[in-house]
């Protein structure tokens, strides 16, 4: 069964995943360590993808694909026809910088889907990235959270502009559906509902 939740007009349902996420080949650079422990979060803007990885990335010949930002930028020539056919989306990591995407692809709405990959669920950069993609860069198509996506972050992801969520493979997407409805009337304006509670309701003292 699919582990993808999609939100359409505020109605969430399990949907078939029509997109293949293209992975980078593993890096042979050793993970950064601090005090003997592997550093769990990469720094924003930290260069993490090598030329070799980009060159060695296997792009399927057909079908709808979501490619890594670095591959999208470096190997765009190979993708031009498929981009114009609406078969190419982009995924970015939480430590990557949106300016790199926008400088390369001024009109984001050429892309039918953008995914943000969160390596560890506690990395809240994903919420700012979603908010910026929607509010600053006007992205209107499918915005998907991928990676360590768990039900207890779904409500925040929804409010930050994400409308599809690929729940981590070992968890039930069906159970996760409920968490999109954790709160009925949140206080502050955000992407899904820009008006704060004091503009939506008449709250007389």
């Amino acid at each position: 069964m699919s582990n993808l939740i999609q939100l359409n007009d505020d109605i969430a349902s399990i949907a078939e995943n029509l997109w293949v996420t293209v992975q980078l080949p593993p890096s042979n650079v050793e993970a950064r360590k601090q005090a003997g422990k592997v550093v769990q979060f990469k720094l924003t803007g930290e260069a993490t993808v090598s030329e070799t990885q980009i060159a060695d990335t296997v792009i399927p010949a057909t079908g709808k694909i979501i490619v890594p930002l670095s591959v999208f930028i470096a190997r765009k020539d190979e993708l031009l026809t498929r981009i114009s056919n609406g078969e190419v989306g982009v995924w970015i990591d939480t430590h990557e910088v949106l300016a790199d995407l926008v400088n390369d692809q001024a009109d984001l709405n050429v892309l039918p889907i953008i995914a943000v990959h969160v390596e560890r669920f506690a990395d809240g950069r994903i919420f700012s990235l979603g908010t910026l993609l929607r509010k600053r860069y006007g992205f209107k198509n499918e915005l998907r959270a991928i990676g360590d996506v768990l039900r207890d972050q779904l409500f925040f992801l929804k409010r930050s502009g994400f409308n599809s969520y690929l729940i981590r493979a070992d968890r039930s997407a069906n159970d996760a559906l409920a968490s999109l409805k954790d709160f009925t009337a949140p206080y502050q304006g955000a992407v899904d509902e820009p008006r704060p509670v004091f503009s939506r309701y008449n709250r007389t003292a």
Partner: peptide, 14 residues
């Protein structure tokens, strides 16, 4: 207080 309560963008800060 109300604004900061479950502010979605700032739910998991550094």
């Amino acid at each position: 207080r109300q604004w900061s309560t479950f502010h979605p963008e700032f739910a998991l800060l550094p």
